[in-house]
Simulated scan of single mutants.
Amino acid sequence: MVLEHALLPVRPGLEQAFEAAFAEARELIAASPGFRRLSLSRCLERPGTYLLLVEWERLEDHTEGFRGSAAYQRWRELLHSFYDPFPTVEHFREVLTATPTRA
């Protein structure tokens, strides 16, 4: 499993419109081969910043599959105009996890 990470800086005053556009865009990515799940979270300290986490089966499912698809072109139309500056997207593999310990 590969975890895609992006901090999305949304231009001030467009947060509500961004969230509405993202609600539509998530269906595009969810239909992609290799997609597992995503979460979009809004920063409490900087309300114009969002954290996007997407789980993929393989790196290529994102970098070649989704980004090379017609769905990605629509994704770009829906979302890319909201960002300033354009976000950096990085990919991670899990190293360690933790769960609560019981006494």
Rank of each mutant, 00 (worst) to 15 (best):
A70E: 12
R67K: 14
E60Y: 13
L96H: 15
L79I: 09
V89Q: 01
L3M: 09
Y72A: 02
Y83H: 10
L40V: 06
Y72M: 04
F66A: 08
V89N: 02
E27H: 14
L78K: 12
I29W: 02
R74Y: 03
Y72H: 07
E27K: 08
T97Q: 15
R74C: 07
P100V: 11
S39P: 04
L8G: 02
R11W: 01
T63M: 05
V54Q: 01
T99C: 03
E19P: 00
P85F: 10
H80D: 07
T88P: 00
Y72Q: 01
P87V: 01
E94M: 12
S39C: 09
R74T: 13
L28N: 03
Y83C: 07
Q73K: 12
F18E: 00
A17G: 05
E94Y: 02
E19S: 06
L14P: 00
A6P: 11
L78I: 09
H5C: 04
F86Q: 13
A17T: 06
Y72S: 01
F22Y: 11
R42Y: 06
A25D: 02
F92V: 09
Y72I: 01
G48S: 14
S81N: 11
T63E: 14
F22I: 05
M1Q: 15
R11Q: 07
Y72R: 07
V2H: 10
A25Y: 00
A17K: 08
V2D: 01
E55P: 02
E4P: 02
A20C: 04
A25V: 06
T88F: 08
T49F: 13
L52C: 14
G48Y: 01
L14W: 00
P85D: 09
E4C: 02
R67H: 07
L53M: 13
T88G: 07
R102C: 01
L3E: 00
T101R: 09
T97E: 15
F66V: 05
S32V: 04
P12A: 07
E90S: 14
S69A: 04
Y72T: 00
F35W: 15
A30L: 10
T49N: 13
G34F: 06
L14H: 02
P87G: 08
A21M: 03
H5Y: 13
F92C: 05
A71I: 02
S32N: 06
C43F: 06
A70Q: 14
E94N: 04
L51C: 11
F18D: 00
S41W: 08
T97G: 14
L53E: 09
E57S: 13
Q16D: 13
A98E: 14
R102F: 10
L52I: 07
S39Q: 11
R93C: 01
G13Y: 06
L28K: 01
H91G: 10
H62W: 01
E19V: 10
E94I: 04
Y83A: 02
L28T: 03
A23K: 11
E77F: 08
Q16C: 15
M1F: 11
A17S: 08
M1S: 14
R36H: 14
V10Q: 01
T63D: 13
R42T: 08
E77T: 06
D61L: 01
